[in-house]
Design a protein around this nucleic acid. Structure first.
Lengths: 393, 393
DNA sequence: GCATTAATTCAAGTAAGTTGAGCATTCAAG
DNA sequence: CTTGAATGCTCAACTTACTTGAATTAATGC
């Protein structure tokens, strides 16, 4: 895929200042809602008047809504604002080799619609067709008009660009080599589009509606086909120079006397192989969930065998990124993830072993198995509430 | 050390817009110098008039200087501007357990003064004393007044904060536990101060005056006492939640049949141990350089033994950060680093193995052994030319 | 009740970027 | 050699969006 991630260094003027301040205010309302204008002024360093003007605009555009007055303490009661739950929405799409997922999420991070469809193949033509249908269905289901759609976030398996990661189990999408997916989906869907890999999407989903809502720096280990790492550092998504940051599956880890790629120990493929050698086949997350509920021995064995290399990898991630927490999630049942986390034995030699920790070092993602599609939508929401001076082309 | 890295989300106004645009223009002049106002206007998206006003201000404040007209092509010849080589400076200080380094660097990244002093100890009182002397000496040597000093960058060995990395070889600074080093050095030096760890400083040094001048995303593996990783992602320094990102020395790597911390294989301590078992003692970089020139066999053996685990670690860094390049540098002789790089056997399974590479995957740092102190100064310069809306407290 | 406190609104003021007309200087075509 | 196109730059008027300060509203506390 031809994905241009370069961002020019760009100056600011009154118009872009307003744009930035809108994002600041949306971010602060998200974090502190319900909240009044005076408080936002204090938090943002803007004058009350500036905040007042922008809030009026955001309310008029149905980004915000009034949550009543808070009569508590002296003085004029605060008019409190919250994110408008049914004002604006973002569409998330996840493209996989044989399936697509769609999700519609509102500004507050609440999911309003999800759907999974199977595809014969994921060539651009097929995907374009179904993407447009899914968009229409999502909007109709939620009773929305176009203008209420902020944009779409598309999540596709990385890596992007012509690189030498000749993968075996990892199934690339076919026919996308010469396509710029952003331009492609903007053309197809007729709305602003962002494109990321699945792990990054999942990570951002947790920030908008999951366990990372109060975190500014964290890492997300995503169980997809392989294993991906999404990184949010100081509130910004880390993409790397070519959008391929987070290829954690290829990291070499130790397990007992052997060593190998982390993906060989901890991934859905690893589970599949482990179960296959016991004569079991699993297709879906539901299959896995059932086996897990039955306390299936090969599956429990896998947990025990995956935990040590995964612990080592988490220690590595902690030491390299110094996150507030590491989140585990993706296409595995929640209960299985919980067991896996319980089985971890995290290394002592880590900068994350602080005395002043408020959170566990490892959290389980809250977005469940739709996490990547939700992540797509979350990326759009995130963009709207992340202050940043950028070119709007 | 008590280091607060939290940055509030802050709105923008006319004044902060101007501040931002100044940084944009400094960054663009750095990158494209010599360059005229019209070109900067095109690059920045600002009007010629706005650029003109800001350039006049920057020239008046001796950040920029005129480099003559360029008569080439039609139209009015461009009045070209460059960074003013002797206009403003930044002081860099590196604090080590038994020594301090100072460097004075101008806006263009050129070193104007360096000095190393030994210390009986590195308690705050001793450091404060010598820091002030070094500052005075640097300014005097360069014939500067105070106002020409932009600020000081202090580089100290991490990690910061109360964490559970009980290090053996790694020597922490004593007596700094309850000190906020930023406030401390601002008080002592009477100027704006930034504090970072050594690897981050070294990384930024390469961006200002070294091999990373045209890179926006890269990683720097720093040979200090242990081994550190400095990361610049999309032009921004990655610090992690608590300023401790980049603790790469603790990562577990494979080496032949054994495995262990990367630091055990590739670091100055590893070299020391290897040479010690051959009955040799080395104290300084010069000692190492001499041995290397003599083709000392234990040292050459070390190169061969360090290369495989280091290659593995570089592959991991590539896959996690997707940088444009990985830079190796620090307190080792350049020739030794070159040999080490030549001995690397980088893994094939890396997102950095792109067809469209323009640079080698691994570069040797250009800043030599003063790199961390230079990095301190570079951090200040970097801050001045990195557009960003922040609180100035 | 009446002073105090705090949020909000209104109107005027200000900083900084934008726009458009005009000037300066060079190259190139006639 | 003259003239016109191209390009950089300056000046003055204009616009946007934030700030400031005074006035207004609605609670609490004595």
């Amino acid at each position: 895929m031809k994905l241009d991630r370069s961002r020019p260094i760009i100056g600011s003027n009154a118009e872009r200042t307003r744009f930035h301040n809108r994002q600041v205010i949306l971010a602060l309302v998200r974090r502190h809602q319900p909240v009044g204008r005076a408080a936002i002024a204090r938090l943002s360093g803007l004058s009350i008047q500036a905040v007042s003007n922008i809030i009026a605009e955001l309310t008029e555009q149905s980004f915000l809504s009034v949550a009543g007055r808070n009569v508590k303490g002296r003085g004029l009661p605060v008019i409190q604002y919250t994110l408008n739950r049914d004002g604006v929405f973002a569409l998330g799409l996840e493209v996989r080799p044989n399936a697509m997922f769609a999700a519609l999420v509102n500004l507050a991070g609440e999911t309003r619609f999800t759907k999974r469809i199977s595809l014969p193949s994921s060539t651009p033509a097929v995907v374009a067709d179904h993407a447009l249908n899914l968009k229409a269905e999502a909007l109709q289901h939620a009773g929305l008009q176009g203008p209420q759609l902020l944009g779409a976030g598309v999540v596709m398996p990385g890596p992007f660009g012509q690189i030498g990661l000749d993968d075996d189990g990892r199934s690339e999408l076919e026919g996308w080599d010469d396509i710029d997916p952003v331009a492609f989906f903007e053309e197809v869907l007729g709305t602003a589009v962002v494109v990321e890999n699945d792990a990054t999407g999942a990570a951002v989903a947790e920030r908008i509606g999951g366990v990372a809502q109060d975190l500014k720096s964290y890492c997300y280990i995503y169980f997809g086909a392989g294993l991906g790492l999404g990184v949010v550092a100081d509130g910004e998504v880390m993409r790397g120079a070519y959008g391929n940051a987070g290829e954690i599956g290829h990291v070499i880890v130790q397990s007992g006397q052997t060593h190998g790629r982390l993906e060989n120990f901890a991934s859905r493929i690893a589970i599949r192989d482990q179960l296959a050698s016991a004569g079991l086949t699993v297709e879906t997350v539901e299959d896995l969930d059932r086996l897990h509920k039955q306390a299936n021995v090969p599956l429990l064995d896998w947990i025990q065998s995956a935990a040590p290399p995964l612990s080592q990898a988490i220690g590595m991630v902690e030491n390299l990124f110094d996150p507030e927490a590491v989140i585990l999630g993706g296409a595995l049942p929640d209960a299985l993830l919980d067991d896996l986390i319980a089985a971890l034995d995290l290394p002592d030699a880590s900068v994350s072993r602080r005395q002043d920790r408020r959170l566990p070092r490892v959290l389980r993602g809250a977005s469940g198995r739709m996490t990547a599609a939700l992540g797509g939508a979350a990326l759009v929401i995130h963009d709207v509430s992340t202050p940043r001076i950028v070119a709007h082309s």
